[in-house]
Simulated assay, not measured.
Amino acid sequence: MEYDAARIEVLEGREAVRKRPGMWVGSVTERGLHQLVFEVVGRAVNEVSATGAGRVDVTLTSDGGVRVADDGPGVAFEAPAAGDADGPGLEALLTSMCAGSEPSGRRLVGVGQFGAGLFVANALSSRLTAEVRREGVRRAQEFARGVALAPPCAAGPATGSGTTVAFWPDAGIFETTECSFAVLAERFRQVAFLNRGLEISLTDERPAGGARVVRFRFPDGVRDFVAALDAEAGASLHPDVIGFEREDPRMAGTMELAFLWSGTRWNGSRAERVRGFANSLATPEGGTHVDGFRDGVAAAVTTYARKRGLPAAVEVDPGSVADRIGEGLTAVVSVKLDRPEFLGATRGLLGNPEVRACVGEAVRECLDGWFEEHPERAAEVVDRIVRSAQD
């Protein structure tokens, strides 16, 4: 059989997405369906986060659709003027892959793992409607399998501002169009922890017995996250959460960290619970932000132990201390970067080299101060870590 250029089939735009949906959302199973929801929610979260705080409401409708509404400034359908920093218009985001998958801005929040954006959600939906409330006017547009049925049109007056996107995943593509309330709720809870000031709700209108609703907002951000993780592990009797937030231009981003040590006499467990996030995406393989956290803790522990003359610290190697800091430790290490560099397609490992030194320095300074302010607790934690490092 001969194979030449004439046999090559070029797929572009929505046809490419519908032909190989797994390339864009991971799979056509329930997992891919949830990624589709996360992509639409991600745009809304970034829209309201740009104003400092806001609200996103997600609804699973009784007819199998998903409605995502935000109270942001509203994304105009039309493309902005040349040089405008607001990025492409909503119609372009829905119909063109080249328009970009997210609204422009710094340190974008990732809700979906793939960053595919509204274009992919539109292409993989049998129907999608978009509504914008902006400058006192409500405008709407409807699509079928990624194709606009008509231009955007005025749909009446509007109170307030915001954007609403409702879509119905294509049953001809996905194995199921039934979203899991529990899976979505857990991810939205996580995003709310990692973005202080954000309020996000999930409403399920499908149950015959009536709608169920959960709402998440955490004023203390990752401090609340660590406290919740510790409580879930049954270790809530020692609530000394250490935390800080800092911007560092050297890494072109911010860091927000919280952590605590739970003694074995409180929960009977020495298990480590260290969770890393980059731009709100979980990094289960770690990366430079988690390495920096360990470096900073190890440096502070070693310095304090030697300063206090703890016998166990005389011959200890700081490297072995870094390996043992996790016993009884619960921590959340969250960084938000202008240009996150992930190693691998799944974004599970952060690679920005400058992040390690920045986080390590900040953690050491924070922990140095905490040790001085809490000498009894410091002695307990440091002695346990250093003695463990000698074993």
Rank of each mutant, 00 (worst) to 15 (best):
V41M: 04
A298C: 11
A82Y: 07
F216H: 15
A82E: 15
R7T: 14
A233L: 12
G243M: 01
E39I: 10
K336F: 11
D224A: 11
G162L: 02
T29W: 11
A228T: 14
L260Y: 07
F188C: 08
L260I: 03
N267V: 12
V56Q: 08
E373W: 00
G287N: 07
V111M: 10
Q141A: 02
I385G: 08
A322G: 07
G64T: 09
V222K: 03
F188W: 04
R364P: 04
M97H: 14
H34P: 11
E373V: 02
A50Q: 14
F114H: 13
G13V: 09
S125H: 08
G83T: 05
F371P: 02
M97Q: 14
R31A: 15
R14F: 03
G13W: 05
Q35R: 09
A252F: 10
A312S: 15
P169E: 00
H289K: 04
E30D: 13
D86G: 15
V321E: 04
F225H: 15
A123C: 07
A357E: 07
A69H: 13
S269H: 06
L90R: 07
V191R: 08
Q190W: 06
V10R: 14
C153Q: 14
R196Y: 11
R364C: 00
R356A: 04
E178R: 13
P311E: 03
A150G: 12
P21G: 00
G83H: 01
G309T: 10
S62L: 11
Q141R: 15
F342V: 02
R377A: 14
G146L: 03
E361P: 07
L184D: 01
R134A: 05
S334Q: 09
G319H: 10
V382K: 08
R250P: 02
A258E: 08
A16T: 00
G328I: 06
L343G: 08
A158Y: 04
F259A: 01
F77E: 00
Q190N: 13
P207C: 09
L108P: 01
V301S: 03
V41C: 09
R206M: 01
G117E: 01
R212V: 07
A69E: 12
H34R: 13
T176Q: 07
V28H: 04
G268Q: 11
T176S: 07
V301P: 05
G344Y: 00
F167R: 08
G309P: 07
H238F: 13
N267Q: 06
T330V: 03
P169L: 02
T330H: 00
G117V: 06
V120L: 07
L11C: 01
R145V: 12
V41L: 12
G210D: 04
R189K: 15
R139I: 06
T95K: 02
L90G: 08
E175A: 14
S96A: 03
T95N: 04
D391I: 14
L90Y: 00
S96D: 13
R384P: 06
L281T: 10
V48P: 10
V316Q: 05
A258F: 06
S269T: 13
F218A: 02
G160F: 01
T330G: 00
T302E: 08
D204W: 02
T288N: 04
